[in-house]
Design a protein around this nucleic acid. Structure first.
Lengths: 166, 166
DNA sequence: AAAATACGTCAGCCTTATTGACATATTTAA
DNA sequence: TTAAATATGTCAATAAGGCTGACGTATTTT
């Protein structure tokens, strides 16, 4: 590192396109998640708990392996979070009927209530952001976000929406 | 937690609007950041380094306090990351000319090059996601993202774009 | 019966964040 | 000109949430 030259000019859209979008994504996502953070803190939970709670509520009866696949974390990481949520009575396990090795995850009533509360907070922000947009605008936003996702994950997100009982 | 009732129905858009958008945001943002993660790993850097590098390149000469304000982290957190980036020759400090207490942060040539490389990766994904959208569609996306941001941060993002030399 | 699968857990490590306390240089105010 | 405020750096301890590797156990498949 022999004394490298200092640069004093700003990096701008001339150097690379889409700086504004890059920054909008950073700040938008940060605001988006802090909504839930505050509520989660009351339960001693973090974002990891939120993600698990969310997908268990969206796909009741999913297995641990499926959840790992969605979240792309290791089972060791998941297990701590899952234990917290089971200890607090937000999530419950059942052995699989067809395959007894699988532990199927379900929300409890309390887990459903918390998941809804968190989603409603985030939904409010989304509604406010969509306020001045028509259906076409919303479609544009959803298409953009969808195409930002790695192709491998896109199908999963799609089947999460309409139905597709696991 | 006296054995709470298990819920087996899926949480759906009937329960709360915008589930699809919530999930699109989660997956889109995850894909978005992993582009850069892979390059950063080669340098032994993480996302924290990326954020610092980015804003120092966008606002060369900003002070430590300003950077803390943008990132909303503590100086203790920042200092380690900043030290790594200075040790590796990606960022350099200069004492403020008017106020000698301030340490103004600048990218080096190497720091600028790395910041650009990372931005270009992310920009490519953004271009692909915008591919089938016209100017109106892009405006919709940017307006949506902008309104998702907490009002306090919106102005900062705006003045980051056009100019506004610090 | 043996092998593969699904899961749980123990132990140790890393990154990135936190808080609190304290040192230092520099500027500003009394 | 001394005192106070400011900007920064740093030390120490802690926490969340990731990771790898190894090993145990139930259950299903071969």
């Amino acid at each position: 590192m022999t004394d490298s030259e200092i640069v004093k000019t700003s990096m701008s859209e001339d150097d690379c396109e889409n700086f504004r979008t890059i920054e909008l994504l950073f700040f938008a996502y940060r605001s988006f998640i802090t909504d839930a953070d505050e509520v989660l803190a009351d339960y001693g939970f973090g974002r990891a708990h939120h993600r698990v709670l969310h997908f268990v509520n969206r796909r009741p009866g999913l297995s641990v392996a499926e959840l790992l696949e969605i979240l792309k974390i290791t089972k060791q990481s998941l297990s701590r979070v899952l234990r917290d949520l089971m200890d607090s009575g937000h999530i419950a396990q059942e052995r699989g009927a067809i395959d007894g090795r699988r532990r199927l995850l379900y929300p409890t009533k309390e887990g459903r209530a918390l998941a809804l509360r968190l989603s409603q907070l985030q939904s409010r922000r989304i509604n406010a952001a969509f306020e001045r947009q028509d259906n076409e605008g919303r479609r544009n936003v959803e298409e953009f976000l969808r195409l930002m996702i790695d192709p491998e994950d896109r199908d999963f997100v799609d089947q999460l929406g309409p139905r597709g009982d696991i």
